[in-house]
Design a protein around this nucleic acid. Structure first.
Lengths: 246, 246
DNA sequence: GTGTGTCCTGCGGGAACCCGCACCTGATCT
DNA sequence: AGATCAGGTGCGGGTTCCCGCAGGACACAC
């Protein structure tokens, strides 16, 4: 059995190496990668089936790396090991995990024992192991109990990118009014409204304020934004070509 | 001589402890704090004059902690030790460093030797040590060569918070038109303009787009936003009281 | 069939925003 | 003294946004 470690911080990397060696004596090869791109390459070249992956890395972060790895071999087992349980990360992972794949999400603050158990459960038993702190949010986020629907989240990302209603409508194939309806739901769910209590004109710019709220609630983060920006630019190029030739 | 270490990651903390012991044999006491609040308390109680401080911590980050520490004892020497050289962090530190204070900014990716030199230079010689990567941006950011002026940056933060032009004007004691002038400069400096090339109506919402650009360029980050949000709420309360009683 | 819910769409108005034009101030340079 | 430049202000208009009102389409309940 072989394990690949993808983690940019040298200290954390060697700690992980140690932990893997201790938890999995049946493991005879442990390789390390310092960023997402290198991780993808090693996973492909050596056909790793067990990977421990950090989330915040640059230039290529863990979610993007996991996406391409899973696209090539959907049965790869990946343990995500991260500092934070931001909703943006949880949602990002839920988007890319293939059906039936075994994966885990453990916080770096977890104890050695918890990490050991997770390593064995995922790589040996092919179980899913999600930290409780992460699990709670996952249900809130995916079950539509209080969270955002898929299209709402897309529109939220689009206004975070700075698009106009009209462009969002084009991009998502909606009418202008529908986009604005989504926006109103977003404003409501984020609690964006005029705090005007006494005087007549203390106001928020709803659109910008919603993005701020989303950031403060960790619904969005820099990495999500950067990824979305790339997608947008790529879409813009395609779209320009279409309408340009028409 | 005594040194205080403020760092939330246990691995990094013990590595730092080791490094301090090795670099400063004349040091007879090393204490550790796991977050900003505890760091402030220890610094106050034990009158530390030499502190190594991580930047990204929660709930109270390194910049906030350093601010209160420096407010109480401006001659404290602080070495900031951080993963990133984001413009938001550099600008945040430049705002709070007292006149003549000795401080340093070293990246976590720096070699052991570089860290050792920085420790001795700051704590023994009271020099300022700034990593080259950080230094370059500092000049761009503070010298107005290509960067933002103070008021421009304030307005940028305000639109990132989702305020209307009118509220910004009130808060910064400007006329509405002046705020809009600042905004236009911001749009220009961030390169926000209509990418409309072929067809007539592909557009950005300038205001939101500017915030996005600022995030992508790391001019703003979550921590800055959270801090600014607190300031805003506090100002709102004061302002409401004033206009309410008027 | 009738009710209830969710998602989509068009119309129209009032507010906020983007921005060109014209003017004033104060500071610095030649 | 004249020139130049950064920063501040008022006016006016075209555009976008926010959002209430008034519907259609589809599903699932009673």
């Amino acid at each position: 059995m072989k394990v690949l470690i993808v983690e940019d911080d040298p200290l954390h990397r060697s700690y992980l190496h140690e932990a893997v060696r201790a938890a999995l004596p049946e493991c005879d090869l442990v390789l390390e990668a310092g960023d997402g791109a290198m991780g993808e390459k090693l996973a492909r070249d050596h056909r790793f089936e067990s990977i421990v992956m950090d989330l915040q890395m640059s230039p290529r972060n863990g979610i993007e790396a996991a996406r391409t790895i899973w696209r090539e071999r959907p049965d790869t087992r990946i343990l995500f090991w991260s500092n934070y349980a931001d909703e943006a990360n949880v949602r990002g992972i839920s988007r890319i995990v293939p059906d039936g794949a075994a994966y885990g999400y453990v916080l770096k603050s977890a104890s050695d024992e918890r990490l050991r158990l997770a390593l064995r459960a995922i790589f040996i038993e092919a179980q899913c192991v999600i930290d409780r702190e992460v699990r709670g949010m996952q249900q809130r986020s995916l079950g539509h109990l209080q969270g955002f629907s898929e299209t709402e989240y897309e529109v939220l990302v689009d206004i975070a990118l700075g698009l106009t209603d009209r462009l969002i409508a084009k991009r998502r194939n909606l009418s202008l009014r529908s986009v604005q309806n989504r926006l109103q739901q977003i404003y409501e769910k984020l609690g964006v409204y005029d705090r005007t209590q006494s005087d007549g004109e203390a106001r928020y710019n709803f659109r910008s304020r919603a993005v701020t709220e989303a950031f403060l609630r960790k619904l969005l983060n820099q990495a999500t934004l950067e990824r979305a920006e790339q997608d947008l630019q790529e879409w813009l190029r395609r779209h320009a070509r279409l309408t340009g030739s028409a």
